[in-house]
Write a protein that binds this DNA or RNA. Sequence first.
RNA 1: GCUGGUGUGGCGGAACUGGCAUACGCGCCGGUCUCAAAAACCGGUCCCCUUACGGGGUUGUGGGUUCGAUUCCCACCACCAGCACCA
Length: 810
Amino acid sequence: MSEELYSHTEIEPKWREYWKANRLHEARDDDPRPKYYCLDMFPYPSGSGLHVGHWRSYVLPDCWSRYKWLQGFKVLHPMGWDAFGSPAENDAILKGIQPSVGTRRNIENFKRQLNEIGAMYDWSREVNTTDPDYYKWTQWIFVQMFKRDLAYKTYMPINWCPSCKTGISNEDVVNGVCERCGTTVTKREMNQWMLRITRYADRLLTGLDQLDWPQKVKTMQTNWIGRSEGAHVTFSAIAADGSRHPLEIFTTRPDTLFGATYMVLAPEHPLVPQLTTPEQQAAVNAYIQKARSESDVDRAAKTEKTGAFTGAMAINPVNGEQIPIWISDYVLMGYGTGAIMAVPAHDERDYAFAKTFDLEIREVIGSTDGVGKEAYTGDGPMKNSGAFTGRPAAQGRKEIVAWLESQGLGRAAIQYKLRDWVFSRQRYWGEPIPIVHCADCGPVAVDEKDLPVRLPAVEQYQPTGTGESPLAAISEWVNTPCPRCGKPGKRETDTMPQWAGSSWYFLRYASPHATDRLITEEGRKWLPVDMYVGGVEHAILHLLYARFFTMFLFDIGVVDFEEPFKRLFNQGMITYIGKSGKAEKMSKSKGNVVNPDDLVQDYGCDSLRLYELFVGPPELDAEWNDKGIEGVHRFLKRAWHWVSIHNGKWAEAPMRELLIERHRLVKNVTERLESLRMNTIVSAFMEFINAVTAIPEPPDRETVEAFLIAMAPFAPHFAEELWQRTGHQPTIFHQKWPVWDEAYTTATVAEIAVQINGKLRGTIRVEADSTEDQVASMAAADAQIGRYLDGKTIRKRVYVPGRILNLIVS
RNA sequence: GCUGGUGUGGCGGAACUGGCAUACGCGCCGGUCUCAAAAACCGGUCCCCUUACGGGGUUGUGGGUUCGAUUCCCACCACCAGCACCA
């Protein structure tokens, strides 16, 4: 066969057609091979399309899937669309088209671009969160939660984004601004659907232990859940009229109870009005007013402590002492009981507050005296603590809690930072919450046979700004009989947050077309996800919600595992050195996007795949370099050339030199794949080609085959084409991943670095099985090295076989 | 402030459990081919001294452990990310 030049424009469309025509990437339930489920975080199909940064997140899992396939697994590698959410709605407002129409268009474009990646997606299992056949099951899950008291509606102050005109969850507020639009978030009292994720706090925490996830993500989730062990203690507050009210606090340091010199309530605490004395009324009201008007950003920014005295006193249960009750915004209504005992000697915030308002500071822990300087937050012997004086703090904690329990004044308790999940949105483009409000029955779930509750067409998508969803304006949709009693009722008009559909989509891929159940028996066998790949920006919320949904579905018997994602890998972003000279995130608004379509045109999909891997360690952000792709493109051309010129003239007996290169390549690629060091895999291929092209003799057939199969996950079109051209039947993906023989990965002749007193003085070539004495005498005989040994005595000799000889002389 | 991460040539980066630092690629310099250019190919490219032979230094800074440290320990600096009064 005459040599032809590498032409990506000819081979890439050809093989994509072939794979598609032969339905090679469809995962079949009845395939007898063991399963492997590799999942990409599904994209939101935005109007701006994919840039090279998105590509990066899809290339790695595709290489991994193809590798698993060559290893003999039946691989499920699906793709779908997280298509609800406000951008589609904003777009609809802007362009005057329905969100569903714009979404469909974007999906088409995304799908075209994703096909350019050459990935082995199983499009027969495509899911779309906005498809009624899909969100039927999102609503079904909500109904199951509602029936089990995990979904409830309540009035609560929520974060309100004045720009999006909608309530948003704590999770969507980043540094006091709306995650989506960047507007400063305010508070607003609204009736909201909530999910009791807090009931799963402990399981969400302990479940992390068994997961093969980056430590960083586990730590972030642990901190987010924020478990604290301590005690609830009941103080007795004396109101202005002399009446007594139990006042419960949470503390992690019951051992410091004797050091409580005052108490602090959150300004919103319900007891505040009853406790405030007439004299203090004005000051307290003024403070509450001020606290309410401040945004969270302002609160976070200030360092000094503020507050007001209520005029009331409380009785400390351990010693009967009366201490003043203050209010301050450093105590939060949303955590613990909204009230604390203040121990200024042993808590930094209490200390600062006490200093500001000149309150008593009493030390109860530690053997030294440090009142004047700072709070001591460590452990030590207890003092000034009645019967407990002298106990180590850790022991005292337990004993005081035991005593409080015996007196009915307190109990051991665990607190979490995690809050219930605000699940309502007053927006159009989301799943309708399947509830009907009835004057007699209250909120009633829509019958399961009547799901899905379809999103009706409306004319106005604009958020109303009144706190009601645009759905509220459609009276023929809103008015519906109560599913329980049949009397006139009204549909819930709030929709679900974008997180809803993405909290369980990975389950649906297993049986995407099942109509009578969320997941079929056959489908269950694909689960759980073996490898989950996506950006670290979803480290907390998406992953936490998905785990919560999965645990719930486990509890009601839908799935038989609690943790959905066994292994997680977080990809870094692609950055671009902009005009500022600094690395910027690639985004359309910055005008720095590199369009992959052009690169595919000029260099080919395989070149772009390789460069996306070669650009840097996959878990770190990487800088885009426009010239970088040329290097990998040249490599492909050289590799093509090497195979082509020797094609059909294979060596009968392979040279040892070549065997060594082959076995090293297979070893390096395999080992680096297992730890996902993709950038160094590309280097390994380049080193291999550099080495073999220096050998004029033709290679043996087996070496070329091993090279092509090893290349197949990374440059699949390239590998398929050369596989066929070297006289094989397609497809190369029916081959087995090559193995290496350790005997060939170490050379028979070793280069030993010789150091004198730790400094490199030369290298010698020795037989790999030489003894230490043989190596040492060879080193001494070497002219270069010998110069440093003249007239010296060798004090010590260190030999690392095959690597280094260090002689200590004087 | 707390928690975690990162720091290696002009640039992206490599170095498995402590063993020849700078692999691989980009860029740059020189050469071959060409009327010329592009492409391709060959050679060079951490810094300093030396015509050369050769020598000295170098993984953010300063210490330590070790025959030997990019790797382990301590302190510090810079940058990045997450959290931010969580009792």
